[in-house]
């Protein structure tokens, strides 16, 4: 599926981030460390799937014709998906999932806040809803950083390891390619490179309180925005798209 219109590509990109993040989070359902957390994590997962649907629905509207939200989720292959690599990494242990969430939430909050000011009213409206969710997500994941970072030695080590593994995938959040730069000029998109310092401040402050070290920068791995993914995304899609691939063209 080829997307040409810059706005559509941008909207789908945001939808992809949300869908893949939601997918990874949903894998925790029935597997969380205790029941309250099972329910809380499911809420976050639902927020992300809900967010994906809003972005995809908007993109479908922009495309017109037969395209629906499901077209984007179920009928594109790995090379067409443009989510951040950070979102697709396997869920790992609870520390890995929560560290990923924290690093992403600390980005997502200022991002959605900025997107609220988009000149595109639809994007701004989606952002207004997402921003409220992100505020809660960040509060939750920051709390977990404190508990796990300053909990037992084991939890501290698991978190520190997770952060070291995740860190190289954080650069990509602040990358602005031509697509974004053009839309920034038009007032539509968020200039994410300008969010880096806010993000780093939040992250540094929280990790310090949590007695965790901010990992040394080792450059970043990128590629998600142009469809160069880790091997993991293919397996997500194989599972997610199974029904639509095995029984194409039916109503469910």
């Amino acid at each position: 599926m080829k997307l040409n219109d810059p706005l559509t590509r941008y909207v789908v990109r945001l939808g992809d981030d949300a869908l893949i993040m939601g997918h990874r989070l949903s894998e925790w359902m029935s597997r969380a460390p205790f029941l309250e957390e099972d329910i809380a994590l499911s809420n976050v997962a639902l927020d992300f799937v809900g967010r994906a649907r809003l972005f995809y629905q908007y993109a479908a509207e922009l495309m017109g014709g037969e395209v629906t939200e499901d077209t984007f989720a179920y009928q594109r292959d790995v090379r067409d998906f443009t989510n951040l690599l950070l979102c697709e990494l396997p869920r790992g242990d609870f520390a890995f999932t929560l560290c990923r969430q924290f690093l992403y939430d600390a980005f997502s909050l200022p991002f959605t806040q900025a997107l609220c000011h988009s000149t595109d009213p639809q994007l701004a409206a989606i952002a207004a809803k997402a921003e409220k969710e992100s505020r809660y997500h960040l509060r939750r994941s920051s709390d977990w950083m404190l508990r796990l970072g300053d909990g037992t030695q084991e939890s501290h080590e698991r978190c520190q390891n997770a952060l070291e593994q995740l860190w190289i995938y954080t650069d990509e959040m602040f990358e602005c390619d031509d697509l974004v730069n053009d839309l920034v000029v038009a007032g539509v998109a968020v200039n994410t490179s300008s969010l880096r310092s806010t993000w780093l401040e939040t992250v540094t402050e929280t990790l310090r309180t949590a007695t965790l070290a901010v990992p040394e920068s080792q450059g970043g791995v990128t590629g998600g925005r142009v469809g160069i993914h880790t091997d993991d995304l293919g397996f997500i899609l194989a599972e997610m798209q199974f029904m639509q691939r095995a029984y194409p063209g039916l109503q469910w």
């Binding site: 359902m29 029935s30 499911s42 649907r53 179920y74 997500i236 599972e239 029904m243 639509q244 469910w252």
Partner: peptide, 29 residues
């Protein structure tokens, strides 16, 4: 949660996926 949770990742549409997640979450609740 388990027999239904099995299908969250494979639900055939996004709407069905969201509904199923909400339902499985309710079971936990």
């Amino acid at each position: 949660e388990q027999p239904e949770g099995n299908w969250i990742s494979r639900a055939p549409t996004l709407e069905r996926k969201a509904i199923l997640m909400a339902k499985v979450q309710d079971e936990a609740g």
